[in-house]
Design a protein around this nucleic acid. Sequence first.
DNA 1: CCCAGACTAGACAGACCTGTCTGGTACTTT
DNA 2: AAAGTACCAGACAGGTCTGTCTAGTCTGGG
Lengths: 197, 197
Amino acid sequence: MSSIPLELPGALVPTPRGRPRDRVLATASVLFYTVGIRAVGIDRIIAEAGVAKATFYHHFPTKDALVCAYLTDLHDRSASAFAALASSVEPVDAVLALFDALGEFTCGPGFRGCAFVNAAVEYPDPASPVRAVVADHRRWYADAVRDVLVAAEHPSPDETARMLVMLRDGVVIGGQVDDPAAVKATLRAAVTALVAA
Amino acid sequence: MSSIPLELPGALVPTPRGRPRDRVLATASVLFYTVGIRAVGIDRIIAEAGVAKATFYHHFPTKDALVCAYLTDLHDRSASAFAALASSVEPVDAVLALFDALGEFTCGPGFRGCAFVNAAVEYPDPASPVRAVVADHRRWYADAVRDVLVAAEHPSPDETARMLVMLRDGVVIGGQVDDPAAVKATLRAAVTALVAA
DNA sequence: CCCAGACTAGACAGACCTGTCTGGTACTTT
DNA sequence: AAAGTACCAGACAGGTCTGTCTAGTCTGGG
């Protein structure tokens, strides 16, 4: 999920400087997103963050806790970006603006899909704490899209929001696995079709 | 991808009996899909398949080769199921029938999303052989949906097919991460909206 | 000054990973 | 009968994983 820009850690957390905990989180965010969560070990994270292992385990009790912190941090920044973009345009234009931004985002350098979906794939157990963070994020996103439609006085905001969430997921997967430019080209027609329905 | 039933190995390959190579492939298919590819080691696969390690490496040179075989096998069965379903109804009804089946599929027991998308998430490098199998499958699926629309004499089969692929990806993700029943309920409205557009 | 807490470096345990290799059994084909 | 092949069991190598632990350094507040 996370819908809009600010989902890509690499583009947002380029500073590996600061306090050790922040360095770990920033380094882990980039590595988890670009390489995968299971594919990155603690040793690599602490080496690239320039932090001792004991310091890492002082701030994060387990690797899974770091994964949760990574996703929670990303959610906070995504929600801020969403709110900023949605409030910067007229309510009627907000949906199109948000999905235009999504199309640009998927075509950006280093795009590797939705960090939350990817995390869910790597954590198949729905009872996992990581999945709880993912579920929270997805609930927020669905509600946020619905609120935008309500503000635009759309006649059926609930069902349309659910369809737009589906579309967003499809765009993110297509941009990750297929050709992002082709996905972006198809996106606008699909949005207008669903909003008009 | 893989659109329709027959993507879930567990429901299709319940027989761990047969020749050793088939036992390995059947066991690996279930484990890869339900637990994840990186999360399952060779030792577990050969133990559950009842096969010696040397026999495994006699049939599959590496684990990645087994992953490719798993996806290729799944693609073959998915394509057969797709063709069977598409040819069993009138061309005009084929799209709805296919997406109805998809909705049922996502609500089925043990549904864990699209095996090809999940594999792509676990193999971030687009140059990986696994990603090549995934890309082939996705090309096939997009073409197959387009062909169905052409047979139904849809006025814009190409763009509509691209939108329907997006929708399919969204449905699969939603069914995997959110509530499958809710996704299924939204699906039909989205299909009709996109096909009518 | 003193001391608590954050930090560093790095060894260590115990488990797991992929892939190789040895040695032996059983079946099938020539 | 002989040979080749498919299969079995399991040790082994070399590496990686998470997480713990020891031991020592640095810094800021009282």
